[in-house]
Design a protein around this nucleic acid. Structure first.
Length: 195
DNA sequence: AACGAAGTCAACCGCTAATTT
DNA sequence: GAAATTAGCGGTTGACTTCGT
């Protein structure tokens, strides 16, 4: 269907869908010279008939240097699982812990691989061992991470990860040190759990 | 070989937060 | 301080591929 246009207003119809190699090249070249900011301007000045949002996504997920694509290793998978357990669907935070990986890739990987894996394991667990339910949940001292808001699991208690950890602080310098701590602390139990 | 179902993933959409004017 | 603009996030969609019958 052709877009409505009565001619009274110049309405530019933006390109949508898959990016071409030519578009990629234009975007990369422009960003190389001018930097990645003001995406609306980038889109226009790079000569791309795309919205800024689309350019930003393309750059962040595919064109930016040091992007790793595919072949998520076992170690990375473990990390994703653990971070998801801790943070819920906070893909950008999780991606921040995996150099070269993007939130979109992790989200997709979770939805297509890991969520199913988890469901399978959960079913298996509940059908074989009911006592596991009554076992102590995974805890950082004083914190029940099963109750993290936003996680896909049930959140019976009302622990709010935002409140507790204050994500509004400068993560740039803070670098989620507490996550590192948690992961280190959890490492042993995680490995023994799996074996 | 053909076809439908299921899986995968790039890209879009709607919304909120942050920043600028 | 308010309004407008921009950036970023997570959920969802849809095209394409793979698998099973």
């Amino acid at each position: 269907m052709a877009p409505k246009n009565d001619g009274s207003a110049k309405k530019v119809v933006m390109n949508k869908g898959a990016w071409t190699a030519e578009e990629d090249q234009k975007l990369s070249q422009y960003i190389e010279i001018h930097g990645a900011k003001r995406w609306k301007t980038v889109a226009f000045k790079a000569g791309l008939n795309r919205c800024g949002k689309s350019c930003r996504l393309r750059w962040l997920n595919y064109l930016r240097p040091n992007i790793k694509r595919g072949n998520i290793s076992d170690a990375e998978e473990d990390l994703i699982l653990r971070l998801h357990k801790l943070l819920g669907n906070r893909w950008s935070l999780i991606a921040g812990r995996l150099p070269g990986r993007t939130d979109n890739e992790i989200k997709n990987y979770w939805n297509s691989h890991l969520s199913k894996k988890i469901n399978k394991e959960k079913k298996l667990e509940t059908s074989t061992k009911q006592e596991i339910v009554s076992k102590e949940p995974c805890v950082i001292p004083h914190i029940n991470v099963e109750g993290v808001k936003g996680s896909t699991g049930n959140s019976e208690d009302n622990f709010d990860v935002n409140e507790f950890f204050d994500f509004t602080t400068d993560l740039g310098s803070y670098k989620l040190e507490w996550v590192n701590k948690f992961l280190e602390l959890d490492e042993d139990s995680w490995l023994t759990e799996k074996s």
